[in-house]
């Protein structure tokens, strides 16, 4: 398959099951909602070392938030219920509770509830106040800038992590430009996040390593400087490869996101130095969800 001169490899991205929730962070203005959300989703690029994967989903107008203030929706993914609950609680406590003017609400009502403000309330040292509003419990926790308002729980749902595609370009600036265009398009798709910095990862990994203590190591087959040194997947003109990783609530969400991203990459085309789009797969050993590029772009 070739789109605008860009070869779409006949391969698939391999993804695995995760658990996820969404939170809504509001603040006095979008600037502070973003600051809080960025802190909340910081150091959450990969479950390998971060314990979770998190990212900002989109900006919310005041009409879309529970308290009628500007907000941001963020999603957090982890391998299980317990690790998700732990990550959510520590991040909420250290990054949202601490952030000026912030409030924190559940973004998913269905699924199994996990604590959001349920335990944060104890920060109120007995001065915290509970309010039941339309069947949901909220906590008002007195803090130095006023009150921190948070919902008691948020819902955990089954989700998918590790959807991905690789952009192969003739130069590093061209690969990055294509990925930036892809991320902009993919941010219009709901229910997905791209957890790596700016949505793009330049250090894609393979499973295993020559070093026993490491589970993952550099994906040498896609490293352009190793073309003559390892069993490479790259043709001579490829000088840079970047990857976009997608976590989503459903297979359909990830497919929509991948389609939007790859379409944006192909729109730049071969004339902008984009030569191929491929995907990271591990021969079906990593997870049960397979995203075939040709099917997605058909």
């Amino acid at each position: 398959m070739i789109i605008n001169g860009v070869q779409i490899d006949e391969t698939f991205a391999e993804a695995f099951p995760m658990r996820a929730t969404r939170v809504i962070i509001t603040a006095q203005n979008h600037k502070w909602a973003h600051i809080s959300a960025q802190a909340f989703t910081g150091f959450a690029t990969s479950v390998i070392a971060c314990g979770c994967e998190a990212g900002i989903e989109r900006e919310l107008d005041p009409s879309e938030t529970p308290d009628g203030r500007p907000g941001v929706s963020a999603m957090i993914f982890a391998m299980g219920w317990k690790s998700l609950a732990w990550q959510l609680e520590t991040r909420s406590g250290q990054c949202v509770l601490t952030s000026p003017t912030s409030a924190l609400f559940a973004g998913i009502d269905e699924g199994e509830p996990i604590p959001l403000g349920k335990n944060l309330r104890y920060f109120g040292d007995g001065f915290q106040i509970s309010k039941h509003i339309n069947g949901k419990r909220y906590w008002r926790i007195p803090v130095m800038d006023g009150e921190f308002l948070t919902q008691e729980t948020t819902g955990v749902v089954k989700a998918i992590g590790g959807g991905n595609f690789l952009v192969l370009a003739e130069s590093q600036p061209q690969a990055l430009a294509a990925c930036e265009a892809a991320i902009e398009a993919m941010r219009q798709v709901p229910n997905v996040i791209m957890p790596f910095p700016g949505g793009v990862v330049r250090s894609g990994s393979k499973v295993g390593s020559k070093y026993k203590s490491l589970n993952a190591s550099t994906n040498d087959a896609f490293c352009p400087t190793l073309k003559g040194q390892t069993k490479t997947e790259l043709s001579p003109e490829i000088e840079s490869v970047m990857e976009i990783v997608i976590d989503g609530l459903t297979e359909e969400d990830i497919k929509k996101s991948m389609r939007a991203g790859i379409a944006a990459v192909c729109e730049l085309g071969a004339s902008q130095g984009i030569r191929r789009v491929s995907a990271g797969n591990y021969g079906g050993k990593l997870g049960p969800f397979l995203f075939h590029l040709h099917e997605i772009m058909a």
Binding site: D67, G68, K131, I133, N134, Y138, R140, G146, E147, L149
Partner: peptide, 16 residues
Amino acid sequence: AHTLGFLPLLLKGFQS
């Protein structure tokens, strides 16, 4: 005197 964030949420809850 304070601007309390829960009040709009509380009152919005009575709109139905």
